[in-house]
Amino acid sequence: MKWIRQWWLQPDQYRWLSEYLSTSGLQPFARAIISIVTGVFGVVPIMMLWSPSGPHGTVGHAVAIGITVLCAGMALLWATHWPSQRQSELFTVGCNAGVTAGVLVAGDPLTGLLACTTFAPVAGYVALFHSSRLLLLTLANATLTTVASAGRVAMGGDVPLAVGHLLATAIVVLAVPFAGQVLMRLLTLDAMMSHTDPLTGLQNRRGFYRSILTLVPEPGNSPAPLTVSMVDLDGFKKVNDDHGHPTGDQILMAIADNLRRASPINSVVARVGGEEFLIADATDADSVPQAAEQILTAVSSTPWRVTASVGAATTTLVSPNGQAQELIDQLVERADAAMYEAKRAGGNQVCCKPATGVG
């Protein structure tokens, strides 16, 4: 039962997978594939209007045309830009509604049952990009629609055909999201390997920029504070020269553990250089000085008494509308400049700067 609970509690992975595809250069390709597939599906209902097995009557024809218009709109959405998480969820709802409507208005019950296989790519998409809860809703809808379609075939007098196609459709619809979950696991492992610092287990620079997006508000949401702290160890080269690199590695691992424990639970902690760390969290401007002092304490509390210079920059992000990367870059630059001010002032201290013009 434990693995079922873990599967059920799996969070929505749309934002991090979107960033993973972006940093891997695969987002344009994925966007094109989804747009093309959605557009092709939209052609099918119109083509079926000329088939004896297609929808009959005014209602059936209206539904077919409506599905085509819906698919065209969704294909255009993917063709023009990468959707937000909310738009992706609505895309999933639209796909479910379109397939269900198309199946139910099919003139030939067997044609409707065969059309239920269209739920497979929809479920595969949800398995890759969204939560297990949304996947379960998609599979529940697919099951009810498929059973209803099989019932129509059985009522026509061919029960074995209905049962056979029901089982075959169920296998296809279930196999695709299962494969999607396996692929998701492989992508997660690859992301962990490519976004993690092997020495400390913290995020590396690439992982930092991927994970910090979870702190950025979606367009239309309420403004949210965001603080980035740059931490640079003071005189660490001398530590390595005096005690050797193995000891230096032990110090870095100990400091990494302390920074992880001293940071808020939803923060992003990364090692981005030899002795440089970046921390991002939703701390507001009033709390930044205290949070930065906690960082200093976390560094100096190791047995080697190493100190650090900390630069912090904070802002309030207001629905960045696709410019999140640029805003984060500005925030990191401000934090880096503040850190160098602290270092020039003698080190083992904090310099805080509001990141004006970033929010």
Score class of each variant (00 low, 15 high):
250 Q>E: 14
142 A>I: 00
148 A>C: 01
229 S>D: 10
24 S>L: 08
319 S>N: 08
208 F>W: 03
64 A>C: 07
309 S>F: 09
153 V>P: 01
164 G>M: 00
14 Y>G: 05
325 Q>V: 13
182 V>N: 12
247 T>R: 13
94 G>M: 08
186 L>N: 13
255 I>M: 05
292 A>N: 10
310 V>T: 07
320 P>W: 03
239 V>K: 01
111 T>Y: 07
126 V>A: 02
341 E>Q: 14
155 M>S: 08
233 L>T: 05
349 Q>T: 11
121 P>H: 02
120 A>C: 04
78 W>L: 06
353 K>W: 06
289 P>E: 07
303 P>T: 04
257 D>C: 11
336 D>M: 13
71 C>M: 06
58 T>P: 07
255 I>V: 15
33 I>N: 07
233 L>K: 10
152 R>S: 07
157 G>I: 03
331 L>M: 10
194 S>L: 13
72 A>G: 07
212 I>R: 09
228 V>W: 09
186 L>S: 12
61 H>W: 15
233 L>D: 09
344 R>L: 04
74 M>W: 06
255 I>E: 05
301 S>Y: 09
348 N>C: 04
303 P>Y: 03
347 G>W: 13
280 A>N: 12
111 T>N: 11
318 V>D: 10
191 A>V: 11
161 L>I: 03
149 S>L: 03
121 P>R: 02
155 M>C: 09
128 L>N: 03
341 E>K: 14
152 R>L: 04
145 T>A: 07
255 I>D: 04
263 S>K: 13
3 W>Y: 14
247 T>Y: 12
322 G>P: 05
97 A>N: 04
154 A>M: 02
149 S>I: 01
103 V>P: 01
223 P>H: 06
188 T>I: 12
153 V>H: 01
171 I>S: 00
227 T>E: 11
140 A>C: 05
